[in-house]
Computed example of a mutant assay.
Amino acid sequence: MAAGRVAHVTLQGPSVVKEILTGMGLALFAGSFWKMHQWNEQRKVRAFYDLLEKGEISVVVDEE
C-alpha cells in the first residue's frame, strides 16, 4: 500500500494590493452614503431658510 499524498493549502499573508483596494472601495461606498446624507440635510436647511425669508413660516410663537 502506497501512502497517498494530500495537498495541503499553505497559508499566505494578506495581499497588500487587495487590502488597499478593498479599503478604498469600502471608503468610497461609505463616503458616498455620508455625502448623500449631507446633501439631504443641506437641502432641508436651505428650504427652511427660504420659507423663513419669504415669511411663510416663523420661529416666534404667536401669543394668544
Score class of each variant (00 low, 15 high):
16 V>Y: 07
60 V>K: 08
49 Y>F: 11
30 A>I: 14
60 V>P: 02
49 Y>Q: 12
20 I>T: 04
60 V>S: 05
48 F>Y: 04
48 F>V: 03
27 A>L: 07
14 P>L: 06
3 A>R: 10
48 F>L: 09
17 V>P: 02
56 E>L: 12
11 L>H: 03
58 S>P: 01
32 S>A: 15
33 F>L: 10
55 G>D: 00
36 M>T: 08
53 E>F: 11
63 E>W: 12
15 S>E: 02
30 A>R: 15
16 V>S: 03
5 R>V: 15
20 I>W: 02
55 G>F: 00
1 M>D: 08
12 Q>K: 08
34 W>A: 15
58 S>F: 02
41 E>A: 11
17 V>K: 05
62 D>K: 09
48 F>A: 06
55 G>N: 01
63 E>C: 04
17 V>T: 04
63 E>N: 12
41 E>N: 10
13 G>C: 00
17 V>C: 04
4 G>W: 12
27 A>N: 03
30 A>T: 10
1 M>R: 15
53 E>D: 07
62 D>G: 13
11 L>N: 01
36 M>E: 07
17 V>N: 03
33 F>Q: 04
45 V>H: 14
63 E>G: 13
30 A>E: 10
54 K>L: 09
7 A>S: 15
40 N>P: 11
45 V>M: 06
13 G>E: 01
62 D>H: 09
4 G>P: 12
61 V>W: 05
59 V>L: 12
43 R>I: 09
53 E>W: 13
35 K>W: 13
23 G>Y: 03
38 Q>F: 08
17 V>R: 10
47 A>E: 11
46 R>P: 09
58 S>L: 03
24 M>A: 14
46 R>Q: 13
23 G>Q: 07
16 V>T: 07
28 L>I: 05
44 K>C: 04
3 A>D: 15
46 R>N: 14
38 Q>K: 14
39 W>L: 13
42 Q>W: 13
4 G>A: 13
29 F>S: 12
42 Q>A: 11
54 K>F: 04
18 K>V: 03
25 G>S: 01
18 K>H: 13
35 K>P: 07
61 V>M: 11
18 K>E: 10
31 G>T: 01
8 H>I: 08
9 V>D: 02
31 G>N: 01
18 K>W: 12
32 S>W: 08
44 K>Y: 04
17 V>G: 02
25 G>R: 00
39 W>K: 12
24 M>Y: 10
45 V>R: 15
3 A>P: 10
44 K>L: 06
53 E>Q: 14
27 A>I: 05
48 F>M: 05
1 M>C: 13
20 I>C: 04
63 E>P: 06
38 Q>R: 14
48 F>C: 03
47 A>L: 11
21 L>G: 02
23 G>E: 05
39 W>T: 10
48 F>D: 01
20 I>R: 04
38 Q>A: 09
60 V>F: 06
3 A>Q: 08
45 V>Y: 14
54 K>V: 02
